[in-house]
Simulated scan of single mutants.
Amino acid sequence: MTSSCDPAYAPAGDVDAALMMVDSRLKSVHGGKADADPEGQALFDQYVASLGPGGLDDLVDGTCTLIYMLMVWLRKAHEAEGKDAIEYVVPTLVTTLSRMPKSVPPESIPMMAGLVVACATGLSPSLWRAQYGDWTPPELTPLEATAFLLADHINRIADDNDFATRLIADALSQAYED
């Protein structure tokens, strides 16, 4: 029996833009800069401003799809080692998010943890989240932080600062070809 949260029923959203956003953050952090590249941030802000309401929803759905894709990879990588991704990924994510109180309100952390658990169990994060209402503005930065932290976690596992970006870009290229 399929779930109403089956990823086959979920909108993919703008995964390219979500990946661009996360990749920019990764490069900023691992490039030794304390803050995001101001020029890159200005371009991204301009892009987001041009989206309109439907485009912003597409970006949020794309970020959820990106999180789902990253969690699928993490689940498979952990299972190959006889480990449970939820056991190893969620506590690290929660701990890191809780250390970011200026960007991540504490009340948003359970939602992000639940979102990642939903992905790890094969549920669409967008459809899982929809059960609890619309996204709220205070949840958008934690959503971005969650995508960033999962990509960074994958990069550390692979010992390659660009691995997660290449992983998703390759999957998207393959999907576009099919």
Score class of each variant (00 low, 15 high):
S28T: 06
L70M: 07
A145T: 10
V104N: 10
I67M: 06
E79Q: 12
I168P: 00
D16E: 15
M1V: 05
K83S: 13
S50P: 04
V60P: 02
T63Y: 11
W73C: 01
L19H: 01
A120C: 07
I67L: 09
A147I: 04
V94G: 06
M71K: 04
G40W: 13
R129P: 11
M112W: 06
S98F: 10
P91F: 01
S3Y: 05
F163C: 00
G31P: 09
D14T: 01
T121Q: 11
L93R: 01
D84H: 00
L43I: 09
E79C: 03
E177A: 12
T2H: 07
D14H: 01
Y176R: 14
L172D: 07
I154T: 00
C64F: 14
A151S: 03
P106K: 15
W135G: 01
E79W: 05
E177D: 12
A118Q: 05
E139C: 01
Q46N: 13
T146W: 08
W73Q: 04
D159F: 13
P106C: 13
L115P: 03
L123C: 10
L51Q: 15
A49P: 05
S28I: 03
A10I: 07
S24K: 05
C119S: 06
L26I: 08
D178Q: 14
E144C: 13
E79H: 09
K102C: 06
G13F: 11
T136W: 15
D170I: 09
M21W: 10
W128T: 12
G13S: 09
I67F: 03
T92A: 13
H78A: 10
A169Y: 11
L26N: 06
S103K: 14
Y47S: 08
N161R: 11
G133E: 14
P38T: 03
D16C: 15
G52N: 15
S4P: 06
T165A: 08
A42P: 01
H78W: 08
T65H: 09
G52Q: 15
M1A: 12
E177Q: 13
M1Q: 07
T146L: 08
I157S: 02
D160K: 01
I157H: 02
L43W: 07
E87D: 02
P101E: 08
W135H: 02
Y176C: 10
V60S: 05
P137F: 07
I109Y: 04
M111G: 15
Y176M: 10
D6A: 08
D45E: 05
M1Y: 08
S103N: 14
T63Q: 11
S108A: 11
L140S: 06
P137G: 04
A34C: 09
C64D: 14
P7Q: 05
D162L: 08
R75Q: 12
V60D: 07
F163E: 00
I86F: 06
G31S: 08
G55T: 00
T121R: 13
M71T: 02
P137K: 05
R166W: 02
V90K: 04
R156E: 04
A18Y: 02
P106N: 14
I86D: 03
A80M: 04
T92I: 14
E144A: 15
P105K: 09
D6W: 07
D14M: 03
E177S: 11
R25A: 13
